[in-house]
Design a binder for these strands. Structure first.
Lengths: 248, 248
DNA sequence: AGATTACCTGTCGTTTCCGACAGGTTCTTT
DNA sequence: AAAGAACCTGTCGGAAACGACAGGTAATCT
């Protein structure tokens, strides 16, 4: 282990080349060009819950055929896809071969994926970011079943790193990194939001902070206005998802 | 790449051994016993914001000297430590050598860490889980500066995987995995919470869902009670952190 | 057949919140 | 010396939320 072999730097080469890209498509092209070096059939990146004023739609960069993409979108598979729900349920890479396929709706999804030549084996890396966003980075292979376990171990190590770098880079190039909200809220404003999130009333909070009720209201008013929130509840949910206040 | 060498399985051996452990301490012991195989001086795991009824304190498993731990805790360094704030600010591994050390308070922390023999180089892996919890998995080394870049690449690949498995396992053994909340809330209850989180009033929500105002209130009452929340704002913040409702 | 669960709706009275007016201090930056 | 920002406080009145009563249906499980 003490002298890492040169081949160990491949994933970092890829990461460097992605970092140099300026658009989501270009970064994905780097992945596409390097797929064959890992014996992959597909590489797919799906970013959900992206927090941004401009952008509410998911970030998508996939190598699947346009037909499968269209079918997937039209059938609203993102809400059925067992890989997505498994990803939402944990933090570890998901081996598609270990997904429970007893339920008929799930068999259907996998069956149709096969028809669109997605490949037998798959690995999906769930990614949760600092803004509460969620992404799924998936790779597909099609090797004899007996080769899969060892291939999988290699892929997990390589793509755990690549997928997180890719996501972090994707947010940057899509200019999602800076939600200045955290910096724009004053300490008092955040404090009052935190206590509201903890279920305290304005009266409670005023007692806790040793302020008048009016002052607590004042800070909450400012917090609402800075966060473009329609209510304190709204402000709290925004503050949480923007990472402005910690979890209760 | 197509024939992964046997040494590539080391991290998975460690993972298997951790999986077999029944307590946080035992899992950490596995890491401690394997430190030398990666030339490490320390391995530290810190779990914050752990969502649980029972447990509000952080999960801690570190190899640092008790003196340093005590000093760290007493000085409230968790709120100053630049590694922690860097981790909270992103998703990528943090190289301690790249931390900005111009600010005097930060120089102080690093200087004191040196005194307690923490090691020159460090890598910290920020981990965000599905319950909104945050963890930091750190490793330390002490090698000549010129050896660090290549060692770092190897460590990033190995411990990106190990750290996420460790966190996932830690939540399991500490019985934090199942917050049945998501399953206990009915569809309508979640729906009403989502609209509240989006800033809608009860009247708005009733119009959106085609229900009476009383019914929306009814669902919110049930949601509050199921989540042990003191207000709708409280319920929303809990629902978000428990992953019951998606982000706004 | 009874129990359970999710669902739906109503009123009354109280509490809490929130917007719009008003006033102020202290500290730092320009 | 002026400007800006973060902080603090007051009152009035209306809007919204909430708790505590009340009533109901439809579907599923035991």
């Amino acid at each position: 282990m003490r002298n890492p072999s040169p081949e160990n730097t491949l994933s970092f080469e890829i990461i460097d080349r992605i970092s140099a890209a300026a658009k989501l498509e270009e970064g994905h092209a780097v992945l596409r060009e390097n797929m064959h070096r890992f014996d992959l059939k597909h590489v797919a990146y799906l970013g959900l819950n992206i927090p941004s004023e401009r952008r509410r739609k998911p970030l998508v960069a996939v190598t699947y055929s346009p037909e499968w993409q269209r079918h997937y979108e039209q059938s609203d598979y993102v809400n059925i896809d067992p890989v997505v729900s498994a990803g939402l349920g944990g933090i570890l890479p998901i081996d598609w071969t270990e997904i429970d396929r007893t339920r008929p709706t799930i068999r259907k999804v996998f069956g149709e994926a096969q028809e669109f030549d997605v490949g037998m084996q798959g690995l999906s890396f769930p990614i949760r970011g600092r803004y509460g966003e969620f992404a799924l980075f998936s790779i597909n292979a099609d090797v004899p079943a007996r080769n899969w376990p060892s291939l999988k171990k290699m892929l997990v190590k390589e793509f755990m790193v690549i997928s997180y770098y890719f996501h972090s880079w994707a947010l940057q190039v899509e200019q999602i990194e800076q939600n200045d909200f955290a910096g724009k809220l004053s300490e008092r404003e955040k404090e009052c939001l935190r206590w509201s999130a903890a279920g305290k009333t304005i009266w409670d909070t005023s007692a806790i902070l040793g302020l008048s009720e009016r002052t607590v209201r004042f800070h909450l008013e400012n917090a609402r206005s800075k966060l473009n929130a329609l209510s304190t509840t709204h402000a709290v949910s925004k503050a949480i998802s923007y990472g402005v206040i910690p979890l209760p």
